[in-house]
């Protein structure tokens, strides 16, 4: 049983014109097995929240705390956070030229498990994970995300989620850019990971479609750098119908 606890998180981004405050005090608690959806307008700071929990160097934490099972995540390096059980499926997964998917996955698994996986079982593990996401085995020899279509990148993220078995996963718009079939395939991957590892999920999305597959226990409305309303799955339906006008104070 794990708990990711975010308290009063304030984050700014460093720009040429100085630091700009983006997150203005975020409070959120995610436990194993729970699914939290975050919905909110463009530019409201959802990716900033995801990246700053994962430790992206572009952001400065100016206040608040983030802990995983009581341990301070903000003091850890990016890889230490992953080792502590955190996973971020990125909105825009990064291309790494010259590094093959299979080499990347094996290096990551070795780092996370503390020893190199046995070659015999590992090959099968990767093959199964790729099959489950309906990825062509040829992807294993391709360079990480290089030349992948938008949808292929997202499948690759969820394939890693299943393979690397974190405790808490943040999925930043994993559903964006997916066709209807891919949305189902990717969603099923997330549900499998939840069932297999009692994963806690923070799912950032603009659409209710994905929530039909991955049922949220909680829905949070994010606007202007903080959570402005919380509710159950029904809140998502309301947002889809009415938009965010009442939250952005226009």
């Amino acid at each position: 049983m794990s708990t990711l606890e975010i308290r009063g998180l304030q984050v700014s981004v460093n720009t040429d014109a100085g630091a700009v405050e983006i997150l203005k005090g975020v409070d959120l608690t995610i436990k194993s097995g729970e699914t939290h959806a975050i919905m909110g307008p463009n530019g409201s700071g959802k990716s900033t929240l995801a990246y700053s929990i994962a430790g992206h160097p572009k952001y400065s934490i100016t206040g608040g705390t983030v802990t995983l099972d009581g341990v301070d995540l903000l003091e850890m390096t990016v890889d230490e956070r992953a080792k502590a059980g955190l996973f971020l499926a990125m909105q825009y997964p990064v291309e790494v030229p010259g590094v093959s998917v299979s080499n990347f996955l094996r290096t990551a698994a070795t780092a996370l498990r503390g020893e190199a996986p046995k070659l015999r079982t590992w090959v099968g593990e990767v093959k199964d994970a790729m099959e489950a996401l309906k990825m062509d085995p040829a992807f294993a020899t391709r360079n990480v995300n290089e030349g992948f279509s938008g949808g292929e990148k997202k499948r690759h993220e969820i394939m890693q989620l299943e393979l690397l078995k974190p405790k808490i996963a943040i999925l930043d718009e994993t559903d964006s850019g997916l066709d209807v079939d891919a949305l189902r395939i990717v969603s099923e991957g997330v549900v499998r990971a939840k069932e297999a590892n009692n994963l806690g999920v923070l799912l950032i999305t603009h659409y209710t479609r994905i929530l039909r597959y991955i049922k949220p226990d909680f829905v949070h409305v994010f606007a202007n750098g903080k959570i402005v309303e919380e509710g159950g799955a029904e809140l998502a339906e309301k947002l889809e119908a009415n938009g965010y006008a009442e939250y952005v104070g226009s």
């Binding site: 990016v78 990064v94 990347f104 290096t107 780092a111 890693q160």
Partner: peptide
């Protein structure tokens, strides 16, 4: 690139 790799546990 470094962030992406490190976010997968790689030192």
């Amino acid at each position: 690139q470094l962030f992406y790799l490190m976010s997968r546990g790689i030192e």
